[in-house]
């Protein structure tokens, strides 16, 4: 091609492409903006219900939880974020029983890998959606999850196999959680057996 024509046509193709770019930003100027105004939109903010923020131990109205202090979560945690301390107590019928004393979780070292939750045989712990975890004091990151004075949920649950009990609880749960539990059930049984094996030894 004639270099002069090439020179001139080069200018025009360049201009055309540049204007194409300008058009994109021009259209963007009038579009709805994507910024979320965070503290103001607290009310309308939707956090996915599977979002992992803080580990917590659900307590029922009688201040009872489901943790048997078996320590599986502690052993499974890759970073030593969970510390479970337990006492041995003697029940009325003379059997020795492990009772949860302190369940301490360190927000600062947790990597939210969910291993503790999926391996827990009694579904005693869960991650909640409370994502506002900023703290002024580092010591506040280390938390005791069992409430003072709380105890293990008694009832027939201990004697019954774990799975049917959960099955009964299912319909009331959110659909997302349902699936989580289904997965846990078979593993939980095995883990239960294993932990009892350990105790026997």
């Amino acid at each position: 091609m004639n270099p002069f024509i090439k020179y001139i046509s080069g200018i025009f193709t360049a201009l055309k492409a540049l204007i194409g770019g300008l058009r994109v930003t021009w259209r963007e100027l009038w579009r709805k903006k994507v910024t979320m105004q965070y503290p103001e939109n607290r009310e309308t903010l939707v956090i996915s219900d599977r979002w992992r923020s803080e580990l917590h131990m659900p307590h029922d109205e009688n201040n009872e939880h489901a943790c048997t202090a078996c320590g599986i979560c502690m052993n499974n945690c890759p970073n030593g974020t969970i510390k479970v301390t337990s006492n041995m107590e003697e029940t009325e019928d003379g059997k020795k029983k492990r009772v949860l004393d302190k369940y301490v979780w360190d927000y600062g070292t947790c990597t939210f890998c969910n291993l503790c939750v999926i391996t827990c045989p009694s579904d005693a712990i869960q991650f909640n959606n409370d994502f506002e975890g900023a703290m002024y004091d580092r010591s506040k990151l280390i938390r005791q999850l069992n409430k003072p004075g709380s105890k293990l949920r008694e009832k027939e649950k201990v004697e019954k196999p774990a799975a049917p009990a959960k099955e009964a609880a299912k319909p009331t749960e959110a659909p997302a959680k349902k699936e989580e539990k289904k997965e846990i059930a078979p593993e939980a049984k095995k883990a239960d057996e294993k932990s009892s094996d350990k105790e026997n030894k």
């Binding site: 930003t25 963007e28 100027l29 579009r31 709805k32 903006k33």
Partner: peptide, 13 residues
């Protein structure tokens, strides 16, 4: 402000 609008943000507010 205008930059923010071009970039689908809100800018100082």
């Amino acid at each position: 402000k205008i930059t923010a609008f071009f970039q689908s943000r809100l800018g100082p507010n």
